[in-house]
Protein backbone atom coordinates (compact mmCIF):
# COMPACT_ATOMS: atom_id res chain seq x y z
CA UNK A 1 0.00 0.00 0.00
CA UNK A 2 2.71 2.40 1.02
CA UNK A 3 4.45 1.80 -2.29
CA UNK A 4 1.39 2.88 -4.25
CA UNK A 5 0.95 6.16 -2.43
CA UNK A 6 1.05 9.13 -4.73
CA UNK A 7 1.03 12.52 -3.08
CA UNK A 8 -1.96 14.78 -3.61
CA UNK A 9 -0.61 18.25 -4.09
CA UNK A 10 -2.66 21.33 -4.89
CA UNK A 11 -1.19 24.38 -6.58
CA UNK A 12 -3.09 27.67 -6.64
CA UNK A 13 -1.33 29.93 -9.11
CA UNK A 14 -1.78 33.34 -10.64
CA UNK A 15 -2.86 33.81 -14.23
CA UNK A 16 -0.23 36.31 -15.30
CA UNK A 17 3.07 34.91 -14.11
CA UNK A 18 3.11 31.37 -12.77
CA UNK A 19 0.32 30.00 -14.97
CA UNK A 20 2.04 31.52 -18.00
CA UNK A 21 5.36 30.12 -16.79
CA UNK A 22 3.78 26.67 -16.47
CA UNK A 23 2.43 27.01 -20.01
CA UNK A 24 5.91 27.95 -21.19
CA UNK A 25 7.36 24.83 -19.56
CA UNK A 26 4.76 22.88 -21.54
CA UNK A 27 5.62 24.53 -24.82
CA UNK A 28 9.28 23.72 -24.19
CA UNK A 29 8.33 20.10 -23.24
CA UNK A 30 10.24 20.30 -19.96
CA UNK A 31 9.25 17.11 -18.15
CA UNK A 32 8.38 17.19 -14.44
CA UNK A 33 6.49 15.00 -11.94
CA UNK A 34 2.73 14.70 -12.49
CA UNK A 35 1.50 14.85 -8.87
CA UNK A 36 0.42 18.49 -8.77
CA UNK A 37 -3.07 19.72 -9.73
CA UNK A 38 -3.53 23.40 -10.41
CA UNK A 39 -6.30 25.91 -9.80
CA UNK A 40 -5.95 29.20 -11.62
CA UNK A 41 -6.78 32.53 -10.02
CA UNK A 42 -6.13 35.97 -11.46
CA UNK A 43 -3.73 36.94 -8.66
CA UNK A 44 -2.27 35.23 -5.61
CA UNK A 45 -3.85 38.12 -3.69
CA UNK A 46 -7.18 36.35 -4.31
CA UNK A 47 -6.07 33.38 -2.23
CA UNK A 48 -7.95 33.19 1.04
CA UNK A 49 -6.04 31.41 3.78
CA UNK A 50 -9.11 29.23 4.14
CA UNK A 51 -8.50 27.77 0.67
CA UNK A 52 -5.22 26.38 1.88
CA UNK A 53 -6.56 25.24 5.23
CA UNK A 54 -9.45 23.57 3.44
CA UNK A 55 -7.07 21.72 1.14
CA UNK A 56 -5.11 20.39 4.12
CA UNK A 57 -8.31 19.54 5.99
CA UNK A 58 -9.43 17.60 2.94
CA UNK A 59 -6.25 15.57 3.07
CA UNK A 60 -3.88 17.34 0.69
CA UNK A 61 -0.29 16.20 1.22
CA UNK A 62 1.07 19.49 0.03
CA UNK A 63 -0.07 22.92 -1.17
CA UNK A 64 1.82 25.29 -3.42
CA UNK A 65 0.97 28.93 -4.01
CA UNK A 66 2.86 30.57 -6.83
CA UNK A 67 2.74 34.10 -8.15
CA UNK A 68 4.76 36.85 -9.76
CA UNK A 69 8.05 38.11 -8.43
CA UNK A 70 7.81 41.05 -6.03
CA UNK A 71 7.52 44.23 -8.04
CA UNK A 72 6.24 42.33 -11.07
CA UNK A 73 2.66 41.73 -9.93
CA UNK A 74 0.12 42.43 -12.66
CA UNK A 75 -1.97 44.11 -9.96
CA UNK A 76 0.95 46.04 -8.43
CA UNK A 77 1.33 44.24 -5.10
CA UNK A 78 -1.20 41.40 -4.81
CA UNK A 79 1.62 38.88 -4.47
CA UNK A 80 3.14 40.86 -1.63
CA UNK A 81 -0.15 40.98 0.23
CA UNK A 82 -0.60 37.26 -0.42
CA UNK A 83 2.90 36.49 0.87
CA UNK A 84 2.13 38.20 4.17
CA UNK A 85 -0.90 35.94 4.58
CA UNK A 86 1.09 32.89 3.65
CA UNK A 87 3.44 33.41 6.58
CA UNK A 88 0.37 33.19 8.76
CA UNK A 89 -0.62 29.93 7.06
CA UNK A 90 2.78 28.50 7.93
CA UNK A 91 2.33 29.47 11.57
CA UNK A 92 -1.12 27.98 11.75
CA UNK A 93 0.13 24.73 10.23
CA UNK A 94 2.96 24.58 12.74
CA UNK A 95 0.55 25.18 15.60
CA UNK A 96 -1.65 22.39 14.31
CA UNK A 97 1.36 20.08 14.39
CA UNK A 98 1.53 19.73 10.62
CA UNK A 99 4.91 20.07 8.93
CA UNK A 100 4.92 23.59 7.51
CA UNK A 101 7.15 22.38 4.68
CA UNK A 102 4.03 20.88 3.15
CA UNK A 103 3.05 24.40 2.23
CA UNK A 104 5.14 26.65 0.06
CA UNK A 105 4.84 29.96 -1.77
CA UNK A 106 7.08 30.50 -4.78
CA UNK A 107 7.56 33.18 -7.39
CA UNK A 108 7.74 32.07 -11.01
CA UNK A 109 7.49 34.62 -13.80
CA UNK A 110 5.90 34.17 -17.21
CA UNK A 111 9.34 33.65 -18.74
CA UNK A 112 10.54 31.06 -16.23
CA UNK A 113 9.30 27.76 -17.65
CA UNK A 114 12.38 25.89 -16.51
CA UNK A 115 12.02 27.34 -13.02
CA UNK A 116 8.42 26.14 -12.85
CA UNK A 117 9.57 22.59 -13.61
CA UNK A 118 12.26 22.86 -10.93
CA UNK A 119 9.76 24.19 -8.40
CA UNK A 120 7.31 21.35 -9.05
CA UNK A 121 10.05 18.72 -8.88
CA UNK A 122 11.24 20.16 -5.61
CA UNK A 123 7.77 20.41 -4.08
CA UNK A 124 7.02 16.82 -5.05
CA UNK A 125 10.36 15.68 -3.64
CA UNK A 126 9.71 17.48 -0.35
CA UNK A 127 6.22 16.02 0.02
CA UNK A 128 7.46 12.54 -0.90
CA UNK A 129 10.07 12.79 1.82
CA UNK A 130 7.46 13.86 4.36
CA UNK A 131 5.11 11.04 3.36
CA UNK A 132 1.31 11.10 3.50
CA UNK A 133 -0.34 13.91 5.40
CA UNK A 134 -1.36 12.77 8.90
CA UNK A 135 -4.77 14.32 8.24
CA UNK A 136 -5.20 12.17 5.16
CA UNK A 137 -4.22 9.10 7.18
CA UNK A 138 -6.70 10.04 9.88
CA UNK A 139 -9.50 10.47 7.37
CA UNK A 140 -9.09 6.94 6.01
Amino acid sequence: MADEWNPKILAIICNWCSYAGADLAGGARIQYPSDVRTIRVMCTGRIDMLFIMKAFANGADGVLVSGCHFGDCHYLAGNFKAAKRMFMVKNVLKNLGLEDKRFRMTFVSASEGAKWATVISDVVKTVNELGPSPIAEFKK
Partner: peptide, 24 residues
Amino acid sequence: CGTCGGFCPGGAIKMQHFTSPQIH
Protein backbone atom coordinates in the same frame (compact mmCIF):
# COMPACT_ATOMS: atom_id res chain seq x y z
CA CYS B 1 -7.31 40.90 -8.78
CA GLY B 2 -9.29 39.67 -5.80
CA THR B 3 -6.89 40.90 -3.15
CA CYS B 4 -9.86 42.22 -1.20
CA GLY B 5 -11.78 38.98 -1.58
CA GLY B 6 -8.82 36.94 -0.43
CA PHE B 7 -8.70 38.81 2.83
CA CYS B 8 -12.29 39.70 3.76
CA PRO B 9 -12.73 38.16 7.22
CA GLY B 10 -16.47 37.85 6.76
CA GLY B 11 -16.36 36.36 3.29
CA ALA B 12 -18.53 39.26 2.17
CA ILE B 13 -16.70 39.98 -1.06
CA LYS B 14 -17.73 38.03 -4.07
CA MET B 15 -15.06 37.89 -6.75
CA GLN B 16 -17.02 37.25 -9.91
CA HIS B 17 -15.86 34.21 -11.90
CA PHE B 18 -13.47 33.32 -9.06
CA THR B 19 -15.97 33.11 -6.21
CA SER B 20 -15.11 31.38 -2.96
CA PRO B 21 -17.79 28.68 -3.47
CA GLN B 22 -16.33 27.97 -6.91
CA ILE B 23 -12.78 27.65 -5.59
CA HIS B 24 -13.88 25.61 -2.59
